[in-house]
Design a protein around this nucleic acid. Structure first.
Lengths: 339, 339
DNA sequence: ACCGCATCTGGGAGCGCTCCCAGACCCCGC
DNA sequence: GCGGGGTCTGGGAGCGCTCCCAGATGCGGT
């Protein structure tokens, strides 16, 4: 059962050419969308392709041509930090959608601690035309390293490790800012935050938004506890906040998953939500709508994230000019019960 | 910045041959681990490869050879059912680990409703040597379709759509069985279950385990409500169970994520856990340890799942004989507070 | 001594494309 | 009329490998 399908199945370009009554050069031009092909030939080729069910051989194109017709999706799990799951599938769906009909293969690579050098070598070795690097750990050196080799890359999530690496990210700052503005408009006086870790841009940007939102109303920005995107640490952070300010009346939590822990602690302490303490999360994950009470949160569109990431890379590969160095995607406040 | 890296960077096989003082045929043999190469030549080639930093050109190997040196990871999201996220990243990590050092590219494809036929054509078109099909929807026809074309595939999760398609799955049946045995040993008299949907093998297998566990003690297997792996539906199912049997004293919930909803309903109704009602979940997701109270659950090792999936496919591609048609991976009970 | 077989080696065809070059044809301006 | 473009076309080299074939060498059995 292992094979039976011989060498390379299906018709070759030669055959398409014969059926279409043109040369294989012309067929190649049609496939690659070049100009200088008459409408007549183009039609004939398309008909022949459809008739024969022709699909170009990827390896041959890559070998003969000057591009690899493939991009890599690199998932960089720097250190022990594990990729946040919900994030992943959503983005992936977007990437795939954007790639549809592009004759571009999507190669998957995970950056395991061991194979740092190998991976760079592989990526810059001409196997791919560019890479999408999804790295939640902001100081991961990989994006910069790759960018410096000249390989076109786009990073998902703002890299902290500087350089002029193009990236796509959700507008975490503005999302947080609007969350705070909502809390202010609800007349909350003492607004705390449970922030993400300091070495992740996503955490820091949300923290900045919170700070700005308070600063623009002349409020104090003291009530910050850093945490690490797990429910336990969210609970721990909430406990500390309550110790420091038992009379707080609002918390902006930098991730729904942490908000779950915070909610639990608040309720255990007898705070009513949102009456005593208003809570706003971030992400609008599946957890938000099913929390008790349902969580008001900041939504980011992960599929859009993936699409944009891919679009940006493909545009660069297509040689487009004047591309934005980076893109911030809008977030939106989803109002539920907790605030 | 778009290029500068010329056609195909790095040394060719010819150059390795020159440096090693052998012919390129011999280098090729070494790379592919063929026999009939003297130890002397082998060493020389390895040294030359290391010296030059040579890495074989994937496209050329594929074009010249009779295999594609790539496998596909197909994520089949049949219908509107969205791939369960936590599942995904874990499995992926395992797949990648198993592939390390194998000179095999991992291609990612998602089966979007639109492109069913294209995808089959692509997969059977010689671009890949085999495929890993991860499909949570048991009646998805894709695994069977692919298998019938003769393309070597392994399915992650037992397919319901019959055929003799090789698969790897967690031993959901035994996991559920042991969960029930635990509940029985705790002297619970009225053990209900919140099951998964009927069209997913993962749901049905866990249900069977529950049934068997009760049957072996002559208990009734009436208290079943089907649900769909979301917290809301878990809550709804719990409500219905309580309506039917307010005096139940244990629930086996077929997924942690549903257990969250069930826990909430039980507590809202004033049931103490585990005192009044014991709850056992499944998956040991991150949610389980942080639930209140921490959830006793059945653990499946997702990374192992991915590794096994990949191992099975690679073994088949290597022409290994006597491979098991399918593999069930052990699960283990994780005892926490809820039961 | 011979033949066989297993072991090791190099040469060269060719995988299916893309890209370059040369040429045919047209329409324009002078 | 003729030259200089732009448009369209086909032929063929060659991308970097693998695989086949032919040959060279060694070692056993008869």
């Amino acid at each position: 059962m292992t094979d039976g399908r011989s060498r390379h199945p299906g018709p070759r370009i030669e055959e398409v050419a014969r059926v279409a009554g043109v040369s294989k050069s012309t067929v190649s031009r049609v496939i690659n969308g070049e100009k200088y092909v008459s409408e007549r030939s183009r039609q004939a080729v398309h008909r022949a392709i459809a008739l024969l069910g022709y699909s170009p051989n990827h390896a041959a194109r890559t070998l003969a041509g000057s591009k690899a017709n493939a991009i890599a999706l690199v998932i960089s799990e720097q250190g022990s930090r594990v990729l946040a799951d919900p994030f992943f599938a959503g983005v992936l769906r977007g990437v795939h959608a954007e790639l549809a009909g592009q004759h571009v293969q999507l190669l998957l690579m995970m950056n395991q601690p061991a194979d740092g050098q190998d991976q760079v070598a592989y990526l810059t070795g001409g196997h791919v035309d560019g890479a999408l690097v999804v790295s939640l750990h902001g100081e991961d050196p990989l994006p910069r390293t790759l960018h410096e080799t000249g390989l076109p890359i786009v990073v998902g999530g703002r890299p902290l490790a500087g350089g002029a690496v193009p990236f796509v990210d959700s507008d975490n700052f503005t999302g947080a800012l609007e969350a705070v503005r909502l809390l202010v408009s609800l007349d909350r006086r003492k607004i705390a935050t449970i922030a993400g870790p300091r070495d992740m841009a996503v955490g820091m940007d949300r923290l900045s938004g919170w700070r700005c939102g308070l600063a623009e109303h002349g409020r104090s920005v003291d009530l910050v506890v850093h945490s690490d995107f797990t429910p336990e640490s969210g609970a721990g952070a909430m406990e500390e906040l309550l110790r420091r300010a038992p009379d707080l009346d609002a918390v902006f939590v930098a991730a729904d998953i942490m908000a779950l822990g915070a909610l639990r602690v608040l309720q255990a302490r007898g705070y009513r939500i949102p009456h005593d303490v208003a809570v706003v999360g971030f992400d609008d994950s599946v957890l938000a709508s099913t929390a008790v009470p349902p969580l008001t949160t900041v939504r980011q569109d992960l599929e859009q994230f993936g699409r944009t990431l891919t679009w940006r890379l493909l545009a660069e590969l297509a040689g487009e000019e004047k591309l934005p160095a980076s893109v911030l995607l809008p977030t939106s406040l989803v109002r539920r019960v907790s605030a």
